[in-house]
Design a protein around this nucleic acid. Structure first.
Lengths: 204, 204
DNA sequence: CGTGAGTTTGACCAGTTGGTCAAATCCATC
DNA sequence: GATGGATTTGACCAACTGGTCAAACTCACG
């Protein structure tokens, strides 16, 4: 394993190559389904060389997770309690949908792990996600109480946004199989915008 | 492998026990993550005995899939083109939500497979699901054209129902972690009912 | 240049896994 | 209760997998 002084040029390049390859392979096959050899080939390095940079397969996975989780939660952090409620929520939905379009591998990485009970992720989730959700839940509840948006269960509202947006990344093959030539992401933004507008616009 | 005459009492019992065990293990770990030994232990049989009833691990998986796919698509088949549009859709949503509550393992089995590109399922899906969706899409489009429900993209409408309902099964650990003591399925029926009612009720 | 730390790898190992097989056991039927 | 097919399994195998290690190679720096 490289010493933990400031990383050399080679260390920086190889660590990045390994994590990129790990994302590709882990997101496609899950933790158990991925092999170190696959990741090595994908990264253009030898297997022992990977294990020179990371002590184990598990270490690659957790390093990848902690690198990605922050980015993954950013769209939610950006929800501004002082902004216009309806527009804040709609913008959040669109940001999350963009994430599914632009980073489907990241979405599938998390999906794979959570579907199987998140054995390697539950700690990170309960540390970073729980508080963030609670904070934004308060914001949503406030907007509802003030009559700015229609009343609903704030947690289920957030879950619905996650479910609807991530579905386009996680179930990509199914969605594309059923949509034929049409790109799902052509109509999805408007569909979700309409859905949440109708759902949340307060009755006059 | 048992001869393919009419199955004996023992064959019926053991095949059923194996498929039940396979569902338990495959849904929790995915195809690659599951081992034949795990399934054998779960079924209370020896590994060679499993392979007496099914020629391979893959055969267990595909047998399980084809047994479940029909049941899985039933809620959608029940949508009645002659019924009341809004109530038909809302009833479909509730049926699908019940499936997530009552058969989460089945939901996760499909989720696991589709997230990873559905390598062992795409054929079955494109055979059974494609036609069914196209049929119901026509029904929905008809209802929209007749002004019975609000206009939207019918395919995305169906995807949204799948995403929202299956989310409670597939992301169960995450949802429960974030909801604490509260059972997600307490508020979910009303939440989804409200969501689709607001979304689909035609403007006066 | 030379030199020592940083990097790379071929060969190897132990544990796991899907699958085989011959022998043993069970069980329905006569 | 004998008999032949159905069922079960212990022992085994080859392939794969995560990980190790000593030896070789590369590179930055004096």
């Amino acid at each position: 394993m490289p010493k933990d002084r400031s990383p050399t040029r080679i260390q920086k390049k190889n660590r990045a190559a390994i994590l990129e390859a790990a994302l590709e392979v882990f997101s496609a096959h899950g933790f158990r389904g991925a092999t170190v050899d696959q990741i090595a080939t994908q990264a253009g390095l030898s297997k022992p060389n990977l294990l020179y940079y990371f002590p184990s397969k598990e270490a690659m996975f957790t390093a990848l997770l902690s690198e990605l989780l922050d980015t993954w939660l950013d769209p939610m952090r950006e929800i501004n309690a002082q902004g216009d409620p309806m527009e804040e929520i709609l913008a959040y939905v669109q940001r999350k949908l963009q994430m599914s379009r632009d980073f489907p591998r990241e979405s599938r990485l998390f999906a794979n792990e959570i579907v199987q009970g998140a054995p390697r992720m539950l700690d990170a989730l309960s540390r970073d996600l729980r508080d963030l959700l609670e904070e934004k839940e308060q914001v949503l509840a406030g907007w509802m109480a003030a009559g700015k948006i229609n009343q609903t269960h704030p947690k289920h509202l957030v879950f619905s946004i996650w479910a609807l947006t991530q579905h386009y990344a996680d179930f990509d093959v199914q969605v594309r199989m059923l949509m034929g030539d049409e790109d799902p992401f052509d109509a999805a933004p408007e569909f979700l915008d309409t859905l949440y507008r109708r759902m949340l616009t307060p009755k006059s």
